[in-house]
């Protein structure tokens, strides 16, 4: 538990305009809001495609934020993991009720950092990329350009299962942007996130056939939060865009309903 943060107080994260997409249920049943956090290169649109509406249909207010420099959020030249985590904490604190944060890919790491700054009701880490050298070596073709300041190369074949039509996959991949070089370097360095405040329950969701996150990496993250991952075999890294997108989100919402 870290009380003193002189550096953060002396250098607060500069404000940036953020895109927040939403889908709220017609009747408020008092269920907790969900805040979806996309990974590096992804914007809020990846959740707006299927998950936001589906979540709202099941009675949960749903929101998706774009990290600065992604999607429709403000373009920034400089941003680090702290700035991204700040974006998540800001978006979460702005919601009407205490939120459940759902982070995907490297966005799961951003979420994990944000959990130390905002007492979420619960958290879900989807195909979490917690970084470190191991992840980079597993995906040399993805990470190599990033090592020289380029963007992470995320081809459709890496992100989606074969069930998704190739043209749809290519169209999605074409919409991807990139995170800042500094954030990519920090991902490679893989600093361990601080302990979450308020001890929220954390669920790890992934696929053993994910070509970016290995099965062992998935289990390692789940073990760190004291559980086992919930697995959806046959799906790609981008669970929310894949053909069988309905299964993981239903499982997550079932888990939330049960744990309340």
């Amino acid at each position: 538990m870290k009380v003193i943060r002189t550096r953060e107080w002396a250098f607060p994260v500069p404000p940036a305009r953020r895109e927040l997409r939403r889908a709220t249920p017609e009747v408020d049943e008092g269920k907790p809001p969900l805040l979806f956090v996309p990974g590096f290169g992804h914007g809020a649109w990846v959740f707006a495609e299927h998950w936001l509406e589906h979540t709202a249909d099941r009675g949960f207010p749903a929101y998706a934020v774009s990290l600065r420099g992604h999607g429709e959020s403000a373009k920034v030249r400089k941003a680090d993991l702290r700035a991204y985590a700040h974006d998540v904490a800001q978006a979460a604190a702005g919601l009407p009720r205490r939120a459940v944060i759902v982070g995907h890919g490297a966005g799961a790491l951003v979420t994990a950092h944000a959990l130390a700054r905002y007492p979420a009701r619960a958290a879900v880490l989807l195909s979490p990329v917690f970084g470190g050298l191991g992840t980079a070596l597993r995906n040399p073709m993805v990470s190599l350009p990033a090592a020289f300041g380029g963007g992470l190369r995320l081809p459709a074949g890496q992100l989606f299962s074969r069930e998704l039509p190739a043209s749809a996959g290519r169209a999605y991949a074409a919409r991807l942007g990139r995170a800042t070089s500094r954030a990519q370097w920090q991902l490679l360095a893989g600093r361990k996130p601080e302990r979450p405040v308020g001890d929220p329950p954390v669920l790890v969701v992934g696929s053993p056939d994910d070509r970016i996150v290995s099965d062992s990496a998935l289990r390692r993250v789940a073990r760190h939060y004291g559980g086992a991952p919930l697995l959806f075999p046959g799906m790609g890294h981008d669970l929310m865009l894949d053909t069988r997108w309905r299964e993981p989100i239903d499982a997550i919402l079932d888990w939330l309903e049960k744990s309340n």
Binding site: V3, R5, P15, A16, R18, H86, A89, Q90, A93, G94, R117, Y118, P119, V197, G198
Partner: peptide, 9 residues
């Protein structure tokens, strides 16, 4: 509050 930031705006 350290765990509840004031809006950026």
């Amino acid at each position: 509050f350290p765990d509840f930031p004031m809006p950026d705006s």
